[in-house]
C-alpha cells in the first residue's frame, strides 16, 4: 500500500446512513490534532437514508488549494454502487478497500475486502463498521496516529458508546497490523 506523509487523499463511499460523513469528519479532526491542514467535502442526494453518499478528506502539510480529491490514495466502498463507481481507480494505484460482509468478493491488485460489518456485529453493533474501517485505513495508509483518532472519539462520545467505538477503532487498527 502506498503511503504519503505530506499529503493524503481519501474517499469514503457508500449509502446515506452508513456513517461515512461522520468518519470523514473524525479523520479530519484527528489530522488537525496533528497540526495538518484538512478539507472534508460531502456529496449526497436528497434522502437522509439510502442513496449514494460519499465523503472526501484531504490531509496536507501545505495549504490545500483545490478542495476535491484529485488522486485518491485510498477509497473505502461500503456498497456495490460505490465499488462500481471507484473500482477503476485501482488501475492507477489507488487502494480500494471494501466491506466483504456487504459486497460480493472481488479480486485484483489494489482491491482488498475485509468483513467490517461482520466484525462490528461481533463487537456489539453493526453500526460501528465505519469506525473499524477508519482505524484500518488510518493504520494501513499511515496517514494519522491511532492516538489522535482515540482523542477524537473521546471528545465526541462518552460512556459505553465511547468504549465501544474505541474498541472498534482498535479492532480496525489490529486488522491492518
Amino acid at each position: 500500500m502506498k503511503t504519503n506523509k505530506d499529503r493524503c487523499e481519501v474517499i469514503l463511499a457508500g449509502s446515506g446512513g452508513q456513517g461515512l460523513v461522520v468518519s470523514g469528519i473524525m479523520l479530519a479532526e484527528a489530522a488537525i490534532l496533528e497540526g495538518k491542514n484538512v478539507v472534508q467535502t460531502v456529496s449526497y442526494g436528497i434522502a437522509t437514508r439510502g442513496g449514494f453518499s460519499m465523503a472526501e478528506v484531504i490531509i496536507d502539510k501545505e495549504e490545500i488549494i483545490f478542495q476535491q480529491v484529485q488522486k485518491a490514495d485510498i477509497v473505502l466502498t461500503l456498497t456495490e454502487e460505490a465499488m462500481e463507481k471507484f473500482q477503476s481507480f485501482a488501475d492507477s494505484g489507488t487502494s480500494i478497500i471494501y466491506d466483504s460482509t456487504l459486497l460480493e468478493e472481488r479480486r485484483g491488485s489494489n482491491i482488498c475486502g475485509y468483513p467490517f460489518t461482520d466484525m462490528a456485529g461481533k463487537l456489539g453493533h453493526v453500526g460501528m463498521a465505519n469506525i473499524i474501517a477508519l482505524g484500518f485505513m488510518a493504520q494501513k495508509a499511515k496517514m494519522i496516529g491511532t492516538d489522535s483518532l482515540e482523542k477524537v472519539i473521546q471528545e465526541r462520545f462518552s460512556g459505553n458508546v465511547m468504549e465501544m467505538n474505541l474498541k472498534a477503532l482498535q479492532a480496525g487498527v489490529n486488522l491492518a497490523l
Partner: peptide, 9 residues
C-alpha cells in the same frame, strides 16, 4: 453548496 458544506481547519 460546495463552500457551505465543506469542512476545513
Amino acid at each position: 453548496e460546495v463552500v457551505g458544506h465543506m469542512r476545513e481547519n
